[in-house]
Design a protein around this nucleic acid. Structure first.
Length: 741
DNA sequence: TGGGAAATTTTTTTT
DNA sequence: AAATTTCCCA
């Protein structure tokens, strides 16, 4: 049956000596420092295939961790192809998916039920918003959004509420209290958030050595891609899992670390040799992807970073097109330039699937979409408002989630009055309170209210009817395929009916989306989601549960195919490559993003993001910027990105501000520039004067100073200025009699 | 009480 | 522009 071991060495054919060394390396920790385009994924897949083909590991003894589920699927397919279908059983997944899978089996040890829900960002926020209100705290001092991200950051660092010390936050008392309350509410709801998937797995391993032992023994070889973007909790997990066999192989590039906001810690890769003594280090420095011009330009940018090991990447693809600069008058002009270039190149035979548009933030996609629609060019926006984030889709999924786990309070709260059935905010608050008092979920509150007569009149009738609806639907869980169950839920809840009666175009779109969701559910049932190895003896989580998990954990970056142009953020572009890349919006304030402006560490990360984007290009790279940009409903005027200025002019063609002697990026404006006074009509409407941190200004009373921070946009923006004579002041731009120096 | 309209606030990047 | 909160009427 297992005929694989006959051809182990052929698997290493076609690799260069360094790739070969890494792929064929036998036992012990292994660090592969792999520059952009140096074939790291190829090396990883060949290593997995070789481990199995040579008989050193059986498929189920290998765990490979990738950054996205899409990457996981690709890697699984490639391994499988190399092994002629003997590769099934290798676990290839993201940290989150792997942990979810472990927890489905083991979470009983932690006092949760196996049918646990997974809360996404929106669920977390609404849960927090309610808790903060319940605790009598002001949502001004504790905006749910920022509390959510702080808690998330704690989790990425592996910190539970009890671990917080004063230095972790300015007001650690209340914050850790909220965090604590939030964790109890998750527990009552039998729910985990994204961070908990990792946190609970680590805690499970720490508290249950027997369970840890099983996984330690089982995974004799562990491989991790994009290691530069792992955070402390992921590091802990890897340490625990690799203890027994020490066969941890990590691949990464410190220049491509772009997830600091998720607590990714570059020291993980810098310190690997210290953390895992005796580690073998292999460097992959030959770039097989890009032309020399592209590589040189990208290197020139990233070289401005202080915090890096430094490496020499080389390519045999000499020369190539110079990098193209284009400065448009505004964002529409930028889009029309990009699309006209696409049309031109398509005439020359470029396939749209070989091109991509990268931007810093999702909001930039819109103008490009409009322009592409004009010419009927097929495109796909990756990420952004994902299909599964649409209100009606979330409603439908909430019904399913409640059927699996009635205690999922966020989902229940979402659907209890959708479609409107007369159970308003006041009633829901009461039900929540009833649940809280009994230390149970919203559903517990519903049951208690019905049993103990806490409600009267219309409210009672309506809640009773809703309760009956859920109970009725639950009877069908095990008897019907996911799609049928979903259709039944939408029908019995009158959700579809309400949309039909609405009659608006919007409602029609929503129904369309629901049909699409039904189709997705059907398709899901058709394919066997994850191949299970016999040894796994995994309790077959219901298909319904697997469907929900996939919908929650799989980002839409995980689907991209056909003859379509891809639009995405640079973050989502990591790990991909395209013949032609347009990186747009290279402007101060946008890229580098203003949130990182005042902080050198943040700026270095922005520079790495830029580097990642540039190195995706194989043949042609376009870098564009717009002088005026409509963003967040306002028009702003941006200087070209300082990153453009960091690229040597001999590698580029096209217009640049620098070539015309105009100010670029962080540089001081040329000095005998006429003084700009924007109180006298040069800057109309919402247009913002060319100000940025670092600009020097003069105030009639305070004298000269330098801008340290700009808050907001347009004339209503405030700026913080450090004046030479009077120190730091905050000034509203509109009223300030400032002059630019 | 519930529902929808109007006013207000807030802007990065993701599993 | 979009998300959220407040306001006002039935």
């Amino acid at each position: 049956m297992n005929r694989a071991p006959t051809i182990p060495d052929r698997i290493l054919d076609g690799l260069n000596p360094q790739q070969r060394e890494a792929a064929g390396y036998s036992e012990g920790p292994l660090l592969i420092l792999a520059g952009a385009g140096s074939g790291k994924t190829r090396t990883l897949t060949h290593r997995i295939a070789h481990l199995i083909a040579s008989g050193r590991a059986r498929p189920h003894e290998v765990l490979a961790v990738t950054f996205t589920n899409k990457a996981a699927r690709e890697m699984r397919d490639r391994v499988d192809a190399l092994l002629q279908n003997q590769g099934r059983g290798v676990w290839v997944s993201t940290f989150h998916s792997a942990c979810a899978r472990i927890l489905r089996r083991e979470i009983g040890h932690m006092g949760f039920e196996p049918g646990f829900s997974i809360y996404d960002d929106a669920d977390q926020r609404t849960a927090l918003r309610r808790l903060i209100k319940e605790m009598g705290l002001s949502d001004r001092s504790y905006p749910a959004r920022s509390v959510r991200s702080q808690i998330d950051r704690f989790k990425n660092r592996g910190l539970w509420p009890a671990d917080l010390r004063a230095q972790d936050t300015l007001d650690s008392d209340r914050l850790s209290e909220i965090y604590q309350a939030y964790q109890s509410s998750l527990r009552r709801a039998n729910a985990l958030d994204f961070g908990d998937l990792l946190m609970l797995t680590v805690r499970l391993f720490q508290n249950h050595p027997g369970v840890l032992d099983y996984y330690q023994r089982r995974w004799r070889f562990i491989l991790v891609d994009e290691y530069q973007d792992t955070n402390p909790i992921q590091y802990q997990l890897l340490r625990l899992l690799s203890q027994t066999h020490q066969n941890l192989c990590v691949v990464g590039d410190e220049d491509q670390s772009i997830y600091r906001f998720r607590e990714a810690d570059i020291r993980n890769i810098l310190d690997f040799e210290k953390d895992f003594p005796g580690a073998r280090v292999v460097r992959l420095e030959q770039n097989y992807r890009s032309t020399q011009s592209i590589l040189d330009a990208a290197t020139a940018v990233v070289q401005n970073n202080v915090d890096r090991l430094g490496k020499r990447l080389f390519t045999e693809r000499e020369g190539g097109d110079p990098v193209r600069f284009f400065e448009a008058a505004d964002d529409r002009g930028e889009a029309s330039y990009v699309v006209s270039e696409l049309l031109r190149r398509r005439e020359e035979g470029l396939s749209l699937k070989d091109a991509a548009i990268f931007y810093r933030i999702h909001a930039q996609s819109r103008v490009f979409e409009e322009e592409l629609l004009k010419y009927n060019l097929p495109y796909a926006v990756i990420g952004g408002t994902r299909f599964y984030d649409r209100a009606e889709v979330k409603d439908a999924l909430a019904y399913l989630r409640v059927l699996v786990n009635r205690n999922d309070s966020e989902s229940l709260a979402r659907i209890i009055n959708r479609p409107a059935r007369g159970i308003g905010a006041t009633t829901v608050a009461r039900l929540f309170e009833a649940g809280n008092q009994r230390n149970t979920s919203l559903w517990g509150g519903v049951e208690a209210s019905l049993a103990e007569g806490l409600l009267t009149g219309a409210a009672l009738r309506r809640v009773r009817a809703f309760h009956a609806l859920i109970e009725e639907l639950r009877n069908h869980i095990d008897q019907e395929p996911v799609a049928d169950l979903l259709a039944r839920a939408l029908d019995r809840s009158s959700y579809l009916q309400a949309l039909e009666e609405d009659g608006s175009v919007e409602a029609e779109t929503r129904r369309e989306n629901l049909r699409e969701l039904l189709a997705a559910a059907e398709e899901f049932a058709g394919q066997n989601p994850e191949p299970f190895e016999a040894e796994d003896e995994e309790p077959r989580a219901g298909t319904l549960q697997l469907f929900l998990e996939q919908v929650t954990l799989y980002s839409s970056a995980d689907t991209l195919d056909g003859e379509t142009l891809a639009l995405m953020t640079v973050h989502l572009a990591k790990g991909l490559e395209f013949r032609v890349v347009f990186m747009v919006g290279l402007e101060e304030g946008l890229f580098p993003h203003f949130a990182s402006h005042s902080d050198p560490v943040g700026l270095e990360e922005e520079r790495r993001i830029c580097y990642v984007g540039m190195t995706r290009a194989q043949e042609s790279l376009y870098l564009t910027n717009a002088t005026l940009r409509r963003l967040h409903g306002r028009v702003q005027s941006n200087l070209p990105s300082r990153f453009l200025d960091e690229i040597p002019p001999d590698l580029t063609v096209g217009s640049t501000r620098a070539a015309r002697g105009l100010p670029v990026g962080a540089r001081e404006p040329p000095s005998p520039e006429p003084r700009i006074d924007w109180n006298e009509g040069q800057w109309e409407g919402d247009e913002l004067p060319p100000l940025e941190p670092g600009s020097r200004v003069e105030h009639p009373i305070f004298g000269a100073g330098a801008i340290t921070e700009i808050v907001g946009a347009g004339p209503a923006a405030k700026i913080r200025v450090r004046f030479e004579r009077v120190g730091m002041k905050t000034i509203v731009l509109r009223y300030a009699q400032l002059r630019l120096l």
